[in-house]
Simulated assay, not measured.
Amino acid sequence: MKKDLIAPCGMNCRLCISFQAMTLELKKKGFNRKYCRGCIPRGENCTHMGDSCELLRTGAVRFCYKCDKFPCKRLKALDKRYRTKYHMSMIENLQYIKENGMDAFLKRQEEIWKCQRCGGAICCHNGLCLSCDLKKLQQNKRYRWGEVEVR
């Protein structure tokens, strides 16, 4: 995992379906999904929070935890949605980085999100390894964590 794939809001872009669709070239495999290189690599600072936060929009802080308002109302709402739907917490990610450093965080993320079959990254948006489970996602493009397959 790379440091520049951790967005200021705590999102690990490597786990995002749009990033994985790009790296795995899923359009060539019949799965039409928007591609994204990640917030920092494409110069956006933070796609989730930049529109409402001057510090992020201007790049004045690298991570939200460096702000006096951390965690702000907007980040709390985003975090609640991601904890509920996608089994990850941006606030927990940021607290871990602050307390343990980026290298420890990246190592931990690798352990948590590693596909046990191929070693790739599990997608946080659906709980699937898009290398191993693409057929499941093609059958149900709105697939979410642990749904029963429709036959």
Rank of each mutant, 00 (worst) to 15 (best):
G146A: 04
R108Q: 14
R81T: 13
Y96L: 03
M22W: 05
A21C: 08
A77R: 12
C46V: 08
I97R: 04
R14E: 12
L137V: 12
Q116M: 06
A104E: 13
T23K: 15
T58D: 12
I122N: 05
E149D: 15
R151N: 15
E149T: 14
G50F: 10
R57P: 00
N45G: 01
C72V: 11
D51Y: 13
C123F: 03
N93K: 03
C16E: 05
R83M: 14
K85D: 13
T84A: 15
F19Y: 14
C16A: 09
K27Q: 06
M11K: 14
Q138C: 13
C46I: 10
F19D: 00
I112N: 08
L78V: 09
R42N: 10
S18P: 03
L94Q: 14
V148C: 06
F31M: 10
M49L: 15
C72R: 04
P71Y: 10
W113D: 01
N126I: 05
R33T: 00
Q116H: 05
S52Q: 06
Y35V: 00
D133C: 08
L5Q: 02
C132G: 11
N140V: 00
D4Y: 08
C124L: 11
G50H: 07
C67I: 07
K98I: 00
P8E: 07
T84I: 13
